[in-house]
């Protein structure tokens, strides 16, 4: 036993040496990605490799931890691309000067202005709408609330399921409320949510809790409901596109930028261009998201069940990304778990 363990240790240190020696030399047939997005990457990436011969390696983690890693590694980093599931982390990374601006007409044409930052250092690639969902048996479509603020009203006391404060999705939604409604109003709304809601730790649990009658309404990303419907077409939760009259439904993005210290910036840019155009469907459909590129058709299941023609919040992602820490402060203030 001791011998085999020692042998393993030797192998390990040998691996360590070989893998790092491979990475140190800039190898222009490989793009390396730090990604907060984990699932469904494979298909788009392998198609890109097949088309171009450029290999892709990726390392998963949470957006924030990977950003910390990138920051600590500085110019030693191996990452060419930093990819996240949320705008706030892109905004923070841009603020800390971790990206390089790209000059790419392909990207600026493909991605509308509100889904990239002003100096074109990061680009949204897929859109996720965070909207209101309700139990279709307990409420008629007319009874279902259609505004985020309504869920803070006393009539919904004990009937709302929301996601916890650690979720970037919660943070970005509240950041957008600050931008759209002003800080004071946002505090009132979050206070009302805190009084009314059961706070759960993921969107799937919110949907299941609504389905089984623990709550009547909640707020989730649209694609989790799409996934539940895909698994069970009779799933009892329905969706409302929030704020149809006013500011529109909150849209978050999953996106990426080329790192400032990328060893392989040209290939990295090429990959982003691919993901923003021909690769869009492979990149977004598996997770039932909306393509950031408006030319690209929306995946059928989403189109059929929810439609894609709704009033979308036009707020620039960089804007609510910048308000992220303010959103956290509000949640601390009112004690939103």
């Amino acid at each position: 036993m001791a011998v085999s363990v020692a042998a393993l240790a030797l192998t390990a240190s040998a691996c360590g040496a070989s893998s790092s020696s491979g990475s140190g030399s800039s190898d222009d047939t490989t793009i390396k990605i730090y990604t907060g997005r984990h699932y469904d990457l494979e298909q788009a990436f392998s198609q890109f490799t097949e088309d171009t011969g450029i290999e892709i390696e990726y390392l998963t983690g949470t957006d924030a931890e990977l950003r910390e890693k990138l920051e600590t590694e500085g110019d030693n980093t191996e990452a060419d691309i930093f990819m996240t599931v949320d705008a706030a982390n892109l905004a923070l990374a841009a603020k800390e000067d971790m990206f390089q601006p790209l000059e790419s007409e392909t990207l600026t044409t493909a991605i509308p202005e509100q889904y990239r930052n002003a100096d074109n250092s990061w680009f949204g690639l897929s859109l996720r709408a965070r909207t209101i969902v309700y139990n279709g048996e307990a409420l008629t479509p007319e009874e279902a609330p259609s505004s985020y603020a309504e869920l803070a009203e006393p009539e919904w006391d004990g009937r709302v399921c929301l996601r916890q404060s650690t979720s970037t999705y919660t943070q970005s939604l509240i950041a957008s409320l600050i931008a759209n409604e002003g800080r004071d109003r946002a505090v009132e709304i979050v206070q009302g949510w805190t009084d009314n809601a059961e706070i759960l730790d993921n969107d799937i649990k919110i949907l299941e809790s609504i389905d089984q009658g623990k709550c009547d309404v909640g707020i989730t990303n649209h694609y989790y409901l799409a996934r539940k419907i895909e698994e069970n077409p009779d799933f009892g939760v329905k969706l409302v596109w929030a704020e149809p009259e006013g500011t529109g439904t909150h849209i978050n993005i999953s996106g990426a930028g080329v790192t400032k210290n990328a060893d392989n910036p040209e290939a990295a840019q090429q990959l982003l261009e691919y993901l923003a155009t021909d690769g869009q469907n492979l990149f977004v459909d598996g997770n039932h998201e909306f393509p950031a590129n408006e030319e690209i058709p929306v995946v059928e299941l989403v189109e059929e069940n929810f439609g894609s023609d709704f009033n979308r919040d036009q707020l620039n992602a960089q804007e609510f990304g910048d308000l992220n820490s303010e959103a956290l402060a509000i949640m601390d203030e009112v004690g939103y778990r």
Binding site: S13, C15, G16, A17, S19, S20, S23, S25, E73, N76
Partner: peptide, 14 residues
Amino acid sequence: PQSLLLTGSVASLI
């Protein structure tokens, strides 16, 4: 040497 960076190696993980 540049080719033997510790960051991101199995050794650093161990």
